[in-house]
Design a protein around this nucleic acid. Structure first.
Lengths: 349, 349
DNA sequence: TGTCTCAGCTAAAGCGCTTGAGTGCGAAGA
DNA sequence: TCTTCGCACTCAAGCGCTTTAGCTGAGACA
């Protein structure tokens, strides 16, 4: 074998045309299932294409107005919160499943913040790189929907609430408020009255939804000592907040963590401070993963199917790319997996 | 505001040419820092381009032979092992840092297995989608280097050992063997003689390197009872293997886990079986993350800078894309962070 | 027999960019 | 003064595909 074979040449439609004895246009018609060629020609062309291992050049396609066959995905979170997070990989994995089936590529980028993220969208649009984007972590007062509207870039917002001001955007969301209500309901039934919610990043829309839902539920039941504290999702802040609230004069009897990482960190802190889980304090993680079964006691957690979430979002985006109308679809409410970290309030408490 | 504004039109070089009163070619020369235009023309063109918010269409660029300004990254692992893994997100994050600086896009795909991964490379190549790829999880007897050679696709292998048979590929690797030797050295000094290595996927090249290194070290020191067991990296298998080896008649006094997830799962099992860590058994995780500080006792771990790893790999790839020679670069050996899970063997043992 | 139609195909332009082959012109050299 | 550079720039072709308009020949119909 020669040390450095020249790279193989990519076959083009011209090659197919020559081999099949027809014009390039005929090839184009044949391969795109467009009328204008007979069935037998179409078959012949298809066979030659297959035989040559031809694949359309996305560049050429994009240039002649067909779109880039690519969708974009930007992750804008501080680097250190990216560390141990099962959600995004699973989400992306679900997204991929759908996209791969349609031969759509996924252009991935991590950005520092939303401002950077917007710049990325602008660049992608100007460079003709993507046909649409998947937007995650919608914020309160988010600049992205407006921008995407302006650019005319099809998009689906993952995890946002329905938004009438942007009829062009699809939304895939989970009913956080409903889930929170159910959760509080369950804790209330177990006798919990003092509940602290260790929430995620303060400007994420779903953080706010959860906080509001908790407050509403507390109000409805006349629970006075209910509080939400926002964090950056990191184990460090989760631990710090846990320490603070458990060291208060009247510590809560139940802790709701907005992700698994903080919940695990929180349990460790609780143990260190001499709190027994769930006897002294119940713990629920809003996100289930292997992590929740790696600590003792096993953590009760709200479980959602992130892979399916990704699939749904990607499906909505392809629908949009096909010219379909923007839609708002709700994925199932996360289900509470009761393990060993939740229980009735101890009578003495 | 009209409900549906038509999407803004992307400015092209023709627009710039018209506004600047020069030909398209002059614009091209000016914007690409090529000789052929005077400095004042260049400036004028640049200004107009800026003012119009022009960005080169990657499609057109790619079509005229400039490459797609995109690199590819395929992750081929069983979906369930993707769950809680800090390594890849960090790696990608480092990769992005470098790529973003050069306006290179990252096309990301998850595949089922290596065969699928190869298909993805072929497709990307045929579709003109990427200029190069980053290959992770090199295997023993890996089909990918040959394929990439054949396609003439620049690539850097992340985590592979130097490979003379593929002079076209760059390699970025860590000295697993050296790290393992140092680790065994340390454990030996603490009195450990029975060591079990709960390894990762059996056909990954670095798994084999570690296993071989462990065996070599054991041989050199005359340690008889040393063993490596391969797993799929999941907490479940990590736990299962831990249970099996600790229930043996003469259980090991030290456990080396090939990732943090399994180590954490293993510690839980050890506790359950009544083993105290590190008094009865020492535990080391080959991968550091927040996880290692979420369990008691805190886990000693081999720490590498995955973000930097990603940066290095991406830098090598860009060098390759610039026409540089393939290189083999070694990143620093992972450093052992000693926490609370490792200690001297108890005299009685 | 001549005309009309229409299925089945070809020719050619165009997408936005790069690039090699000119072209015009002022300055330097004979 | 005339030639010769060489700089600054323009022309036009080409990358691989789509798409519109146009062409051809065979059958339908009068």
């Amino acid at each position: 074998m020669p040390a450095k074979r020249p790279a193989a040449r990519r076959p083009t439609m011209k090659d197919i045309a020559r081999r099949a004895g027809v014009s390039e246009s005929a090839v184009s018609f044949a391969l795109n299932d467009r009328p204008g060629v007979s069935e037998i020609t179409r078959d012949r062309v298809r066979r030659v294409a297959e035989q040559l291992g031809w694949r359309p050049s996305t560049a050429a396609r994009a240039l002649s107005g067909e779109g880039a066959a690519t969708v974009g995905f930007v992750l804008a979170r501080p680097a250190h919160t990216l560390g141990v997070d099962s959600f995004f990989l699973q989400l992306v994995s679900g997204i991929q499943e759908v996209l791969a089936g349609r031969h759509l590529g996924l252009l991935f980028q991590v950005a520092r913040d939303v401002k950077d993220e917007c710049a990325v969208y602008r660049r992608w649009w100007a460079e003709h790189r993507v046909d649409g984007v998947l937007v995650v972590d919608p914020r309160t007062d988010d600049p992205r929907p407006d921008l995407l509207d302006e650019l005319g870039l099809p998009a689906v917002v993952i995890g946002g609430a329905p938004d009438e001001r942007h009829p062009g955007l699809s939304t895939v969301w989970a009913d956080d408020a409903g889930a929170m209500a159910a959760l509080v309901d369950g804790l209330h039934a177990l006798g919990h009255r003092r509940i602290v919610h260790i929430a995620g990043l303060p400007d994420l829309a779903h953080t706010e939804r959860r906080i509001r839902a908790l407050r509403a539920e507390a109000g409805r039941r006349g629970l006075g000592e209910v509080e939400s504290v926002t964090t950056d999702y990191s184990d460090a802040e989760g631990a710090a907040v846990t320490r603070r609230v458990l060291e208060a004069p009247t510590p809560p009897t139940a802790l709701i963590y907005d992700n698994d990482v903080m919940a695990v960190a929180g349990v460790a802190v609780a143990a260190e401070l001499g709190f027994s889980v769930p006897a002294d304090v119940s713990v629920v993680a809003w996100e289930d993963s292997a992590l929740c079964r790696m600590v003792k006691p096993w953590l009760s957690a709200l479980s959602r199917d992130s892979v399916e979430f990704g699939r749904t979002a990607a499906t909505e985006l392809t629908a949009l790319l096909d010219g379909g109308p923007a839609r708002t679809v709700r994925v199932p409410v996360p289900r509470l997996i009761e393990r060993d970290s939740t229980g009735a309030v101890r009578p003495s408490a």
